[in-house]
Design a protein around this nucleic acid. Structure first.
Lengths: 122, 122
DNA sequence: CTCTTTGTTACACTGCTCATATAACAGTTA
DNA sequence: TAACTGTTATATGAGCAGTGTAACAAAGAG
């Protein structure tokens, strides 16, 4: 799985890392039990500091995507708290849909975009 | 339209303001042509500084939700750039769906949550 | 046992954002 | 004229983002 940092983005580095790893899990590029690079190794390959990678890993651990082990490093381990996942999904959809509704995007168009997005993960 | 700040939230004050105003427009609590409180008045009523309100208004102007007029103050004026709106929607849905997919939320469940959310704005 | 690697923690520093405060300016309105 | 609008400028304190250096404890490899 390829990870890279956009140094011109306004998104924080650790946020970019977090989002790319979540995307990698969703796309099955990395699966439960897979190892991620060590904080030092990933920091070297993408060209940022060790602590920034560690911050991303720590957040992913708190959010239930990774487990951190002194022996094996960072291991993908998705905590399937479905109730929490659905609540989170609803909150994010509410914000996205609100903006679309303001712009007169119809229900059908919103549903169509969702359908296209869902297919990316199939 | 009622606006209030959660002083214990980790979201920045100006972000809370921005989101609530967008939500107000989406729910038709405020409509095109309506006036918002002046920066000083809103700052007083919600208990924050004038510049923080001004920052929220300025961002909403840049994002195409408001027009700022020295005569009338802040006026709701939604710029209907549908192409931009749909691109923005797709990007936000991609992130939200990715997280849900990681948690094994099914396509049907995602579509169901979307349906519920859309109905809030009808 | 020694060396290396792992996550983890601590401290220090720069630069930036958030939020506040005070003040002033130019244009509008009563 | 007086009171209001958004706008701009300057300053301050708090906190975050990112880097750098350094060390620690636990585990694995030689």
């Amino acid at each position: 799985m390829l990870i890279r940092i956009d140094f011109n983005s306004d998104e924080a580095f650790y946020v970019q890392l977090r989002n790319q790893i979540i995307m990698g899990i969703a796309l099955s590029e990395i699966r439960d039990g897979d190892n991620l690079p060590s904080v030092r190794e990933l920091a070297d390959t993408v060209g940022i500091n060790m602590h920034t990678v560690n911050k991303a890993y720590t957040i992913l651990k708190q959010e239930g995507y990774l487990k951190l082990d002194r022996r094996r490093g960072a291991v993908v381990s998705v905590d399937s708290d479905r109730a929490r996942a659905i609540a989170e999904l609803r909150s994010q959809l509410r914000e996205a849909v609100a903006r679309a509704v303001c712009r007169n995007v119809s229900e059908e168009e919103i549903a169509e975009v969702l359908k296209e997005v869902v297919e990316e993960f199939r």
